[in-house]
Design a protein around this nucleic acid. Structure first.
Lengths: 279, 279
DNA sequence: TTGCTCCTCACGTCACGTGAGGTGGC
DNA sequence: TTGCTCCTCACGTCACGTGAGGTGGC
């Protein structure tokens, strides 16, 4: 299965022969890689001495450069080998088009992963600078999210997980990598049952739903996923004290969870509800 | 080195236990992957029967989701294992920032590869639709290139390769993956010595040099890298016949070379020189 | 002749996938 | 009891990298 070698061996002359190390330096292809390509018959040196020393011709610089181009384009070594048997401009154009599509898919995967990282970094940073001591009023930016369907609660101690699994499995376009938060239809619902959100939502930059920008009453608490430590009561008391009027849903998100903390009793949750501004 | 399991085992109850296949379906993590994670101690099931059957708790859905997030972010399995020992928001933010940079590097690599593919696809397509029969006048688009330093020719039969290697090794910012062409300072130089270009250039979309857009006299020939088959004379004759005036350098590029053809005697070269337009 | 380059061969890598052959659980 | 799920163990993958131990070439 010698592939890309014989084509150009005829012009090898002794004085243009290059030993393997020098050839490696010229082409930026490692010595072990060159030996490997020789072993699998993909690219064999123009000459070998009786002692087995490999010598490459200057012409082979072009050949190896081209093999690396194909590999960089996403062809496997065996594909490159096969290509040697029937190369034609038409088939090559077709194959390259296919590789273009593959690269595009790979690109969007990487962009998605970057987005995931960014979201988590933002949450962690927000957690690091949070004022955990007391409930406060903060301006918050808009947050694109994907909201799941309304949770149906059975009187079942595992309903939280069942709803959570249903959210992950059944919400269209939900990406499992993004963090998930819980949402209560209003402050009253949060106070009534602070561990059972009406909906789950995923913090996804591509989400079509949105937690709107605005001024929010924000509170924090530490503890495991179900725990609230009376945060809902503290927030309610603060709202009354400050004579604020709040509107819309309560958003619960974990700024620090198992991603950034080992001890689950220390998970940092943020609850926020929007202030209705007097006009 | 059990890592992300013990934290959340206490809440496992018999009736919420999930066998491996169902857990795999819920989490989109393959059965063999789950067994592998168990084997290396990264993620062990909440319970095992006497017979060795693995049962996972619903809570572990969150745990495995989070492990996958870290893996998607570019952490290796051993890194994820290590992370279990000291997770803190601060260190996590730092590590994630590092991964962000890595992803960015990976992205630019992929974009570069896409660009390489595009350039080759364009050349191949141009070759497929070329009018090889005769020299003609064509409008051509601008082509960003990186031009190398002037070749110094020794009276040496390998000087072509020596110059070529020098171009590849010494031209700043040259990317070995892009195709390389040859350039003659003017039509007279091309006619005088059609196998020894004054400079090499790389067809690189990021190049700061440019083959300008315009109307060109274009000719084609087939053959190996040094061959011209008198193309320079045919072009010159055409220019005289048509009473054209040409200006600027002659650009030689291979539209079909070993990338898309097996037989080196069939390589398709294009030569073009710009027409000075009468005002 | 010295010392540097080169050689082969065997094994390791990384995160699983794929059987073969056998047993467990409702 | 049947048949389905699950188990372990061993080996394969892909494109090389890394020694160990030995020889070749100027």
């Amino acid at each position: 299965m010698a592939c890309y070698t014989k084509d150009s061996q005829n012009d090898a002359k002794p004085d243009e022969l290059i030993p393997i190390r020098a050839f490696s330096d010229i082409t930026n292809v490692s010595v072990s890689t060159l030996r490997y390509y020789d072993e699998i018959g993909l690219f064999t040196p123009a000459m070998r001495t009786r002692g087995g020393y490999r010598y490459y011709s200057a012409m082979q610089i072009v050949t190896i450069k081209f093999i690396r181009v194909l590999l960089d384009c996403g062809f496997s070594l065996s594909e490159v080998c096969e290509l040697s048997h029937d190369r034609s401009p038409e088939s090559m154009a077709r194959l390259m088009h296919g590789k273009t599509l593959e690269l595009d898919r790979e690109m969007s995967l990487i962009m998605e992963r970057r987005a995931v990282l960014d979201v988590f970094q933002c949450l962690i940073c927000e957690g690091l600078t949070a004022n955990e001591e007391r409930v406060s009023v903060e301006k918050m930016q808009a947050l694109p999210i994907i909201t799941g369907t309304k949770n149906t609660f059975f009187s079942d101690e595992f309903m939280f997980y069942k709803s959570f699994v249903r959210f992950l499995k059944e919400t269209p376009n939900v990406n499992h990598s993004f963090p998930v938060g819980g949402l209560f239809r209003d402050m009253a619902a949060f106070e009534a049952s602070p561990s059972t959100p009406d909906n789950f939502f995923s913090i996804d930059p591509a989400g079509k739903d949105e937690k709107p920008a605005g001024t929010y009453v924000v509170g924090y608490t530490r503890g495991y996923y179900g725990d609230t430590n009376g945060l809902e009561k503290r927030m309610s008391a603060f709202i009354d004290e400050q004579r604020l009027e709040v509107t819309g849903p309560v958003y619960n998100i974990f700024l620090h969870d198992e991603i950034s903390l080992k001890d689950p009793r220390n998970f940092l949750k943020q609850s926020s509800v929007r202030v209705k501004l007097e006009t």
